[in-house]
Each structure stands twice: as C-alpha cells, then as structure tokens.
Simulated scan of single mutants.
Amino acid sequence: MSNDVKNYQKYAAELIGTLVLVLFGCGSAVIAGDQIGFAGISFAFGFSVLIMVYAIGGISGCHINPAVTCGMVVAGRMQIREAIIYVIMQCIGAILGAAILYVIASGKAGYDIAVNGLGQNGYGASSPAGYAMTAAFIAEVVLTAIFIFVILGSTGARAAAGFAGLAIGISLVVIHLVGIPITGTSVNPARSLGPALLVGGEALAQLWLFWVAPLIGGALGAILWKVTSSETGDAS
C-alpha cells in the first residue's frame, strides 16, 4: 500500500470491497444460482475478490474479510487498533451489500426471503448437502487457513509482483467448489453476517460458527505461514 493513502480511504475501500463481494457472490447464488450452479457461484466469489484486489489492493490491501485481517495481525503485518476498524467497515459493507441484493431480488414476483434466502451459510438442515455442525466447523477452519496461507504467500516479499490477485481469486474459486455443498462457503465472517442479519431465524442462530471457525482458521493460516516463511512482519 502507498504511504500517502489516508486512513479514511483505506476504510472506505474495505467497505466498498466487501459490499461488492457480497453483492456479486451472494447475488450469483440468489439471482442466477439455478442457471450457473455451484461452479458458477464459485467463480463469482473468486472473481469478485480478484477484481477487488486490483481495484483496492493498493489502497487498503483488499482484506474485505475479518479472517484475512485477523491473519494479518497474527502475521505481524497489521496493528490491532487498525484491524478493529477494518473489521467494522467490512461488516458495514457486507450488510449494505446484502441489503442491496435483497432489494433487487424482491423485484421478482414470487421471491420470498424466508424461502429463497440471500445466500446465507448454514449447517445441518441448513447445509446445502446436509453436512453436520462438526464437519462444517472443521471445513471452515481448514479452508480459511488455506486461504490465508495463500494470501500471505502471494503478497509476501518473495512473491512474483502483480500476480497476487490471480492466486487469491483462483484459490477462493477452488475453496468454494469444495465448500459450497458443506456450508455454502463462508471463510469470511462479514460475508456471513450480512445475509444472516436480513434473513434472521436459523441463519442468525448459526452465525456464531461462521465467525468462530474462520477467525480460528485465519490465525492458523498465519501461524503456518510464519512457520514456513522467514519473512518478518511489519505492522507499521
């Protein structure tokens, strides 16, 4: 990130980036899911992150995910005080993205948020393929850890310049291809928060898992990166 970027610009970028991720990613499931299937939804999420990496990566680092921000803190690349503001802005962006999606989806006759949802995550009866809570928790921890590991590696000092967005976006596509049948794929607490708040009910009751597991995964991914890399963090 450039040193001349103002704090408010970084925070605004995180809000906008997370809004775009939720609108495009969850929107692909709600609006076009029947046509594009799990594979199409996976690419929508991955490509949403990819384009935002190139759009705002130079401004905020394009975390757009509290688990990523958590990983950056653990890796020593970010201070906790700034991380808290990042997470707040990410959550606001996710809620706004879900609200915009709801307004758009409601424009179709027959849409019912209780039936069609907003691309929320879930386990048990709310899992797309009926996976139990334990399986969902393990999947979210492991998939998030892998995602953070890729992010830290592709943005490290030894990484090839200019290719981080591709590595991050493609990894998220693969993660969704595996994770959608299990939980709908979160690996991002803010992405789960926005739809769950509007849908309510079981989605809101199960939201805890999609905060706890990805945050654990984010920290774990950063620890694994620190173990395998000689790179020193810089939280300045």
Rank of each mutant, 00 (worst) to 15 (best):
A32L: 14
A105F: 13
E82P: 06
A159E: 06
T228Y: 11
S126Y: 12
I170W: 11
G124D: 00
G97H: 12
G162A: 00
G124E: 00
E140H: 01
I31L: 15
G162C: 00
T134K: 10
V30W: 07
L19K: 09
G37W: 02
I151G: 09
W225G: 06
G119F: 07
G184E: 05
G162F: 13
L143T: 00
T155E: 07
T232D: 14
T69P: 10
V68N: 10
I84D: 07
A44I: 04
V103T: 14
F43L: 15
F149D: 00
S236G: 14
A213F: 05
S236A: 09
C91R: 05
Y8C: 09
Y54V: 04
I36S: 05
L220K: 10
A109H: 03
V199G: 00
A196Q: 01
W211K: 02
Y11S: 11
L215D: 12
S154D: 08
Y131I: 05
I95V: 14
I88Q: 07
I95W: 04
T232K: 15
G119D: 07
A67Y: 02
F163Y: 13
V5I: 15
M89P: 03
C91K: 06
I84V: 15
T18W: 09
A213D: 00
S126E: 14
V87K: 03
G218L: 08
T183N: 03
C70A: 14
H176E: 01
T183E: 01
V73N: 05
C70K: 06
Y111G: 01
F149R: 05
T183G: 06
V68S: 07
A205W: 02
V30K: 13
G97C: 12
D34K: 15
A135K: 13
L143F: 12
L23W: 08
G130V: 07
G217C: 06
L215T: 02
L96N: 10
D4G: 09
P214A: 01
A213I: 03
K10G: 08
G25I: 04
G58L: 09
V178F: 15
A105M: 06
S60P: 06
G221P: 02
G93Q: 04
N7P: 11
L143P: 01
I80W: 09
S171I: 03
A105P: 06
S171Y: 11
L204Y: 04
G130T: 07
A99P: 05
I104T: 13
L207Q: 05
N116S: 14
E231A: 10
I64V: 15
L23S: 11
G61S: 09
G156V: 07
V115Y: 11
D112Y: 02
L101K: 08
S127D: 04
G124M: 01
A139N: 13
L152R: 01
N188L: 00
S60F: 15
G162P: 01
G58S: 13
L166C: 11
L172I: 15
A99N: 04
C26L: 12
I170C: 11
A109I: 03
N116K: 08
L15V: 05
M133L: 15
G122Y: 04
